[in-house]
Design a protein around this nucleic acid. Structure first.
Length: 606
RNA sequence: GGGACCGUAGUUCAACUGGUUAGAGCACCGCCCUGUCACGGCGGAAGUUGCGGGUUCGAACCCCGUCGGUCCCGCCA
């Protein structure tokens, strides 16, 4: 069909007779001579149609339209001296057409322009409705190639490390905890349902019991929860699991994988080992378990200094078991007006959205003078003031913002304000050549967190994470007492404040597994029903194992510099989890439902 | 489940405080043009202002509802 690709043609091809296929990127009809920019995915080349090549050919060329698919036969020739174009890779030559066939004619208006020269933003709704056209455009084409290259790099790396790729079921069983499942009714087993996997977690553990030792998968995962710019109902994980490796070895292997990917995609040599931070320290210093370390403004705990002062908002918070923390905004006096930090202001309302009742502040003036509301100023003696300024490293010109109350709320508030101000004050170097890639391992997560609404403990990662042996001790009889406060051998990889992946060492002892499930309030009977196959396997020679999973869509998004994972997925869904192209989900016939022993209770609001 | 923003020609945008026939670039159609490369020139067609209702002498604009899209909170082990 074709002898060459458009983008490869150069001087050395001059005089060669070529056959090209592609899309018409643009046409320039000069009446006597017609120029066609022909595009395939290697690039574009100028095809010239001269009138002396025949009336029929010329007539066809005159009626061409943008984005029609054509096949061109012609000879590569040098362009005239004055018509060379340095801006185009193929700008030294052109193809003189002697035959031109329209393989597919564009009829009617295109919903939007495809041309590489067109940079107009298009409404996403339209892009999704005609995704095949959007994919033809430079940006999406590039993103999908980048995604492919990322996966290929991971595959090569893991291959060389002795991993094998294994597929796990998409039709599996529903499990409690975690996200809402997508369900599939069984026709053969009436009244019973499959669930689509939220991740291949249990299967990959059982592959370890199966003696595979090193597994990976580009795994599709499904979660029926509300969406965000970085969440799709079906998304892809780079899922990895291995046996006989301790945490350090697992982290090291994954660092090398990440280094390899960044080298191949960005041409950057990342420094290893990546920094590590305990979960506790992250919460303390940043108020979040996924801190963005590209900028400072860390949290300072000042509970000790102000616990006895007369300002009840502060002292009361500490007395009630909470804390008072603050962030110091360098140069904040000049940069941030009082209007913004008082009720109604944008910074104040950020604090409110995080659950804070108010937002106390201190402006640091020359010679240690401070400027704040009377209630704080009057109740702060000189030594407390000095201690405060010292601990926060505040200097004249700085603004200190406080969170006081329940520690979780204080952390949430200050984390949110810290991120908001980083954006606002442009503390993050973006669109610069030296983009920072701040990788950070968060380690030593707690096993559980207390779920206020349900008055019970819940697994922070998932209930298969192995607890830290040091926290349990040697005596198996007291494990159940120590479990609730134990740390997990779990880790997250954070990149610039986003969770890139996470994992853990797994429990490979059925007794311990049962105790963990009991700790989150799952009775043995139910646990056996849900996870009996796992517990059984753990009694039949289960190797110590662990692994992790990376959010591939998110990783590609960051590598591509995109702000939504939809731009890294060929056919993504909208925030309402619809596909605008196929219009899925859609109604099905009554007989299909009957086959599945299902009847719909949906009542159309009309 | 909740909050915010958006929806005008095929498309990207405009239309003052609610006021004449809803405009412009690109695309499209026609004519002209032999060296352009985001070609150029002249002309033309193109609109249920997402949809439904209300307020008003008068609505793209204000109000209510609804549909769709985006961002966020809740949610997402």
């Amino acid at each position: 069909m074709r002898s060459n690709s458009c983008g490869e043609l150069r001087r050395k091809h001059i005089a060669l007779n070529v056959k090209l296929c592609g899309w018409i990127d643009r046409c320039r009809d000069h009446g006597g001579v017609i120029f066609i920019d022909l595009r395939d995915n290697s690039g574009t080349v100028q095809v010239t149609v001269d009138p002396d090549q025949g009336a029929e050919l010329f007539a066809t060329a005159e009626n061409l339209r943008t984005e029609s698919v054509i096949q061109v036969c012609g000879q590569v020739r040098s362009r005239p001296e004055e018509a060379l174009n340095e801006k185009i890779e193929t700008g030294e030559i052109e193809v003189c057409a002697n035959e031109l066939k329209v393989l597919n004619q564009v009829r009617g208006n295109l919903p939007f322009a495809i041309s590489i020269h067109d940079e107009e933003p298009i409404k996403e709704e339209l892009r999704l409705r005609h995704r095949y056209l959007d994919l033809r455009r430079e940006r999406m084409n590039r993103n999908l190639r980048l995604r492919h290259k990322t996966i290929r790099t991971a595959r090569n790396f893991l291959e060389n490390e002795g991993f094998i790729e294994v597929e796990t079921p998409v039709l599996t069983r529903s499990t409690p905890e975690g996200a809402r499942d997508y369900l599939v009714p069984s026709r053969v087993c009436g009244g019973e349902w499959f669930a689509l996997p939220q991740s291949p977690q249990l299967f990959k553990q059982l592959l370890m019991v199966g003696g595979l030792e090193r597994y990976y998968q580009i795994a599709r995962c499904f979660r029926d929860e509300d969406l965000r710019s970085d969440r799709q109902p079906e998304f892809t994980q780079l899922d990895i699991e291995m046996s006989f490796m301790d945490q350090e070895q697992i982290l090291d292997l994954n660092e090398r994988l990440i280094v390899e990917i960044w080298k191949s995609i960005k041409g950057i040599e990342l420094k290893t080992p990546f920094p590590r931070m305990t979960w506790h320290k992250a919460m303390d210093r940043y108020g979040t378990d996924r801190p963005d370390t590209r900028y400072g403004m860390e949290l300072t705990n000042v509970s000790e200094i102000i616990k006895d002062i007369g300002f009840k908002v502060f002292s009361g918070a500490v007395a009630n078991g909470g804390s008072v923390k603050c962030i110091t905004v360098k140069g904040g006096n000049a940069a941030i007006s009082n209007v913004r930090i008082k009720p109604g202001g944008d910074i104040f309302s950020e604090a409110q959205k995080a659950g804070a009742g108010g937002l106390a502040f201190i402006r640091v003036r020359e010679k240690g003078e401070i400027d704040t509301i009377g209630a704080i100023k009057e109740n702060l003696n000189n030594s407390q003031k000095e201690a405060l300024l010292k601990q926060t490293n505040a200097e004249p010109g700085d603004l200190i913002l406080f969170g006081a109350g329940k520690t979780t709320t204080v952390n949430k508030t200050l984390d949110r304000i810290r991120q908001f101000l980083a954006q606002d004050l442009e503390l993050i170097p973006t669109h610069q050549e030296n983009t920072q890639w701040n990788f950070l391992w968060i380690v030593d997560f707690p096993m559980f967190e207390f779920k206020e609404e349900e008055k019970r403990l819940e697994a922070l990662h998932h209930p298969f994470c192995a607890p830290n042996k040091k926290d349990l001790g040697e005596d198996k009889n007291v494990w159940h007492e120590k479990l609730p406060t134990a740390r997990a051998q779990a880790y997250d990889l954070i990149l610039n404040g986003l969770e890139l992946g996470g994992g853990s060492l797994r429990i490979h002892d059925s007794q311990l597994q049962k105790q963990v499930l009991a700790t989150i309030g799952l009775p043995l009977k139910e646990a056996t029903e849900q996870f009996g196959f796992l517990m059984e396997a753990l009694d039949m020679g289960a190797p110590p194992h662990g692994g992790l999973a990376f959010g591939l869509d998110r990783m590609v998004m960051l590598l591509a510099g995109e702000e939504s994972i939809r731009d890294t997925i060929a056919f993504p869904k909208t925030q309402q989890a619809r596909c605008l192209m196929t219009e899925a989900p859609a109604e099905v016939s009554e007989s299909q439902l009957e086959d599945l022993h299902v009847s719909s209770t949906w009542i159309d609001p009309e």
